[in-house]
């Protein structure tokens, strides 16, 4: 169970997160929606400890994650709490290591059974041919599969996916989404899916959180938020999704509506 309380982070000139709070039950799935500048990536990076929050806490299974707690044991424990899959699989894998070596390095770090490498590869749909390949010999989809396997090797409670399908071709994106749904069914890992794409969130998540300029403007079950959006920004986001009979000019009107609501 992941519990985030009042996370705040300001960078010079911008507020990336302003009192962000949410909860993600074990095995649950939460979609963090927002555009660039909404702070969604900063929130994800604060969860895994790559960015230190100005204030606020991240709690996993009742234990507060404290980045100041040093030492190998604390580091490895934090790693087993939350793992992350990055956006661009072209740069998120070590170019020197083959797929199998990449997984073996994680397993060794966590003193886990290294014979699990083929099992992990199989779990994400990679075979023996890919096991010996370096990242540049793999396609985008295969790389992202490997990145998912690398995160799962640690057997985390929570898996954070930062725009994990945004860089992939449409037909590959669907394969990865299916894989994630299946991984969640099989291993019971909770998913925190960070994306700009409402349709993807709708497909993969039960709960959602809409971020705008570092603040949570709306949250709740995905179906409800998308069916009856309350905040003007959510309506703007929804209106921006192309669909048959869509009129982009409508979005301009929704933007004006939202800006008007912000004034008051």
């Amino acid at each position: 169970m992941l519990s985030v309380h009042n996370l705040c982070k300001a960078f010079p000139g911008t507020v990336a997160a302003d009192a962000v709070s949410f909860e993600l039950p074990s095995g649950g799935s939460l979609g963090l929606v927002g555009e660039s500048g909404s702070g969604k990536t900063t929130v994800a990076r604060m969860l895994v400890g790559l960015v230190r929050p100005d204030s606020g806490t991240v709690t996993v299974d009742g234990r507060v994650r404290d980045p100041r707690e040093r030492g190998r044991a604390a580091r490895l424990r934090r790693a087993r709490e939350i793992q992350m899959v990055f956006q661009d699989p072209y740069v998120s894998l070590d170019p020197r290591l083959t797929a199998a070596e990449c997984l073996r390095a994680v397993l060794r770090l966590h003193s886990k059974d290294r014979s699990r490498v083929p099992v992990l590869l199989d779990q994400v749909g990679l075979g023996t041919r890919e096991a010996g390949a370096r990242p540049h010999q793999l396609s985008g989809g295969q790389r992202q599969r490997l990145a998912i396997a690398r995160a799962l090797a640690v057997e985390p409670s929570v898996l954070v996916l930062d725009e994990a399908v945004a860089a992939l071709d449409v037909s590959i994106q669907a394969q990865i989404l299916e894989l994630l749904a299946q991984v969640r069914r099989d291993s019971g890992v909770a998913l925190l899916f960070v994306s700009h794409d409402l349709a993807v969130i709708r497909h993969l998540c039960e709960e959602t959180l809409v971020l705008h300029r570092g603040r949570v403007v709306e949250s709740g079950p995905v179906a409800k938020v998308l069916a009856e959006p309350e905040h003007p920004y959510t309506r703007l986001l929804l209106g921006s999704v192309p669909r048959p009979g869509w009129d982009p000019a409508e979005v301009v009107r929704l933007r004006r509506e939202m800006e008007a609501s912000e004034v008051f």
Partner: peptide, 19 residues
């Protein structure tokens, strides 16, 4: 068939293989 939509979730049917 493999693009997620906003409406009620339907199972995605990914195209196997790669471009």
């Amino acid at each position: 068939g493999c693009t997620p939509e906003l409406g009620d979730p339907r199972p995605l049917r990914p195209i196997p293989g790669r471009p």
